[in-house]
C-alpha cells in the first residue's frame, strides 16, 4: 500500500498538471497607474522578452491572472484597481511594483495616495525599487512562479476569506463608495 495515500502533503496528478500550467502561463493585466508603466514595454518586447516564461499581456481583467500594479495609487485609482481585481477569475495574483506600493515611496506624505497596497488588496509578490528594472520585474515573476508551484501564492483565498476586513479598510480611504458590494 502506498504510504503517501493519506499524507496531507501528497498532491494528486491533476493538481500537479494544473499548477504546472498555472505556473508557466501568466497572463498579465498591467495596471499602468504611475511612472512604472514605462518599464512594462521593454519587459514584454524584444530586449527582455518576458514571453519566454509564458508571461504575456492581456487587455481585460476577465482573461488575466496577474494584476501588475505599477506605481503609486491615488484613492481615485484604487477604486478602479479594486473593480479590476474583483473581475478577475481566480486563482489570481497581485504583484506590487515599485516602492510606492510598499510604503508610499516618494509620495509618502501625499494627501491622496495610499501608502501600503496590502491593506487593500492581497499582494503576493512585491518588487522594490524606484524604478525596478526589467530584470527585477522578471525576477519578481519568477518568484511568483516558485510560489505557485509551492502552493503559497494564495492571496486570492485570503481576500475571499477576509473580504469584510479588506472591504472596511477600502471604505476608509474611498469615501464615496458608489459600487456594488462585489464587482463580478
Amino acid at each position: 500500500m502506498n504510504p503517501n495515500i493519506n499524507d496531507k502533503d501528497s498532491r494528486k496528478i491533476v493538481d500537479i498538471i494544473q499548477s504546472y500550467a498555472q505556473k508557466h502561463s501568466l497572463w498579465v493585466l498591467a495596471y499602468g497607474t504611475g511612472c512604472g508603466a514605462i518599464e512594462i514595454p521593454p519587459t514584454m518586447t524584444s530586449r527582455y522578452d518576458a514571453e519566454r516564461f509564458g508571461i504575456t499581456g492581456r487587455p481585460t481583467p476577465r482573461m488575466a491572472d496577474v494584476l501588475l500594479i505599477t506605481g503609486y495609487l491615488a484613492t481615485k485609482t484604487l477604486k478602479r484597481v479594486i473593480r479590476s481585481y474583483e473581475q478577475m477569475q481566480s486563482p489570481k495574483y497581485v504583484i506590487g511594483f515599485g516602492s510606492c506600493t510598499i510604503n508610499g515611496g516618494m509620495y509618502w506624505d501625499s494627501y491622496n495616495t495610499i501608502k501600503s497596497l496590502d491593506h487593500y488588496l492581497p499582494v503576493d509578490v512585491y518588487i522594490n525599487g524606484c524604478m525596478p528594472r526589467p530584470e527585477a520585474v522578471i525576477s519578481g515573476f519568477v518568484k511568483l512562479q516558485e510560489m505557485i508551484s509551492n502552493g503559497t501564492a494564495n492571496g486570492w483565498e485570503k481576500y475571499r476569506d477576509n473580504l469584510d476586513l479588506y472591504r472596511s479598510q477600502q471604505k476608509e480611504v474611498i469615501k464615496n463608495w458608489q459600487m456594488p458590494d462585489y464587482n463580478w
Binding site: D49, G54, Q89, S90, P91
Partner: peptide, 24 residues
Amino acid sequence: NRIGPGISQSFIDVVKLYSKKTAI
C-alpha cells in the same frame, strides 16, 4: 528578434484556462 515561448505554450495556456476555479 526575440526567443519566444515554447511550441507547447498554447497547450499550457488552455490547460490553465480550463483549471480556473471561477467562471463568471
